[in-house]
């Protein structure tokens, strides 16, 4: 049952990567590894959440490091920029819902007719920092391998 859950999650996140990959005009020859990046990241995070219950940020970070390594390998294999795999691998994990919850809090504070269940300031702060921590975990995790793999002398 758990394996089925992971497979379903991988399938769904591959669909997310496909949609955003096509939206971002990813070259057709890279579509398969891009689907792999999407499926790998989000489903691995699901597994990690079972191992480390309640720590979304840590699970996200570890999953993103793995996607980062995957992106480096695919960049070598397909001779193309790693960022294509990094971005599409990270997209399913982007905390879009938290970000917009935070903005709803901001709009409510600004006096717009937004119905919230809790205090607007609390709503804004909590969701904003949750989203920021997740976003930092995603981005730092995903580019950490490239920082370690290619330590070139700076060009300037």
């Amino acid at each position: 049952m758990m394996i089925l859950d992971v497979l379903l999650d991988a399938l769904l996140s591959a669909m997310v990567a496909l949609g955003f990959g096509m939206l971002f005009n990813v070259p057709r020859r890279l579509l398969l590894p891009v689907l792999g990046a999407g499926a790998l990241g989000h489903s691995l995070r699901l597994v990690l959440l079972w191992i480390f219950p309640g720590s979304l940020a840590i699970s996200t970070f570890i999953a993103c490091v793995v996607v980062g390594v995957y992106s480096q390998l695919m960049a070598i294999r397909y001779r193309s920029p790693a960022m294509i795999f990094q971005v599409t691998g990270a997209i399913p994990m982007i905390p879009g819902a938290l970000a917009y919850e935070a903005v709803l809090g901001a709009l409510a504070l600004g006096g717009l007719p937004v119905s919230l269940m809790d205090d607007p300031l609390n709503h804004l702060a909590r969701n904003f920092f949750l989203a920021s921590v997740l976003l930092g975990a995603i981005t730092f995790g995903i580019i950490l391998p490239s920082l370690l793999f290619n330590r070139r002398k700076p060009v300037v």
Binding site: L12, S13, M15, V16, G19, F20, M22, P92, G96
Partner: peptide, 10 residues
Amino acid sequence: LAVGLACAAI
């Protein structure tokens, strides 16, 4: 079509 499916998956 693909973007619709992506949001549906989310």
